[in-house]
């Protein structure tokens, strides 16, 4: 059995993306994976094997809170929302990411 590559994402960026998507409003796991795919124009695909452990991890760290609610289609689903701590964490990660991206860009553009 070969293990599929879990994610093409940089280590740690998945947590940041999840926080970012959830910050837009309460959303269930399937919705998160769809959103990431849509917004990235199919460039990023999140494997369920990474997504759900990450969601549970963020919930346990009290960055996300979860609630069972009905979807538009009338089914019960687990909706995730950002906590205050999660919002703070998102800010930290966003600024870290900005710095990292700038730094990488500088290096890559150097001639």
């Amino acid at each position: 059995m070969t293990t599929p590559p879990k994610s093409d994402l940089l280590q740690g960026t998945l947590d940041m993306l999840i926080l970012k998507i959830v910050a837009l409003g309460p959303i269930h796991g399937y919705g998160i994976s769809q959103r990431i795919q849509q917004i990235s124009k199919d460039a990023l695909q999140v494997q369920q094997g990474s997504l759900y452990p990450a969601l549970h991890r963020l919930e346990n760290r009290k960055w996300l809170k979860a609630e069972w609610a009905e979807t538009e289609s009338g089914r019960e689903a687990k909706f995730y929302a950002l906590t205050r701590a999660g919002r703070k964490q998102l800010e930290i990660e966003t600024s870290n990411w900005g710095r990292l991206a700038d730094a990488i860009a500088l290096i890559m553009e150097a001639s």
Binding site: H28, G29, Y30, S33, Q48, Y52, A77, K78
Partner: peptide
Amino acid sequence: SELRFHVE
């Protein structure tokens, strides 16, 4: 049920 929801 969370995972089943995703699959369905």
